[in-house]
Design a protein around this nucleic acid. Structure first.
Length: 210
DNA sequence: GACCAGGCACATC
DNA sequence: GATGTGCATGGT
């Protein structure tokens, strides 16, 4: 199995090259994007983030002080905007209560402890927590998402109903524990997913993994 | 107009 | 513990 997962990575990298993830200008922007992109097309998230940028609100302190009812309309394009405004505020409350809004302080905490803390925040599930850990804080955590599951199950490497942590463990066990590798692999899986492995428009006949 | 997108929480059985 | 449902915009 080690050979298989590793060879998928090499194949994808040789096909698509580096993906330069996460597409954001700061660690805080990654965290905001991780929440906004839940079950949502990235281009809709970009519009919302650019909205916040224009208003100079891509700042932990400013967003922390901004009332939820004022935040919601600004992120409308990302969909589920009421629930996401609430989730962002929950996350900011955690960030300020536990780390005084200081991302450097947050990044010094033990990875597994921090992961458990993030999962306690209402609105942050495993994928969002892991995206924050890997892409914002540079921790070696493998991120699983809908594309990862779909690609691996269509290639008959896993059962269709595999659990998040089961798949995460499988990947982590079969790869070198390396931030750059985890970063690039997940980004490449999303790239492959978008281009060849969409839900009802699979282009499996021309999938480069075949 | 239907379907989909880089999830998650909560209700109900 | 499994299964279903609400949340919502913008692109194809």
């Amino acid at each position: 199995m080690i050979y298989q997962i590793d060879s998928i990575y090499r194949k994808l990298f040789s096909c698509f090259g580096p993906q330069h993830w996460w597409p954001a200008k700061s660690r805080f922007e990654v965290m905001v994007g991780a929440i906004l992109t839940q079950n949502t097309n990235w281009s809709n998230v970009e519009t919302a983030i650019n909205n916040l940028r224009k208003k100079k609100l891509l700042d932990a302190g400013k967003l922390y002080r901004l009332p939820q009812r004022k935040l919601a309309p600004l992120i409308k394009s990302a969909g589920y905007y009421n629930i996401k405004a609430k989730r962002l505020k929950e996350f900011l409350r955690f960030l300020f209560k536990s780390y005084q809004g200081n991302l450097r302080k947050m990044s010094l905490v033990d990875t597994q402890l921090l992961r458990r803390q993030l999962l306690c925040v209402n609105g942050i599930g495993p994928e969002t927590a892991d995206s924050i850990l890997l892409y914002a804080l540079g921790k070696p955590v493998f991120v699983v998402d809908a594309y990862t599951k779909r690609i691996f199950s269509r290639h008959r490497l896993i059962r269709e109903d595999v659990d998040y942590h089961e798949l995460q463990d499988l990947c982590a066990r079969n790869l070198t524990k390396d931030v750059k590798l985890f970063n690039e692999f997940h980004a490449l899986l999303v790239k492959l997913g978008k281009d060849f492995c969409r839900k009802n428009k699979p282009r499996c006949d021309i999938c480069p993994l075949r």
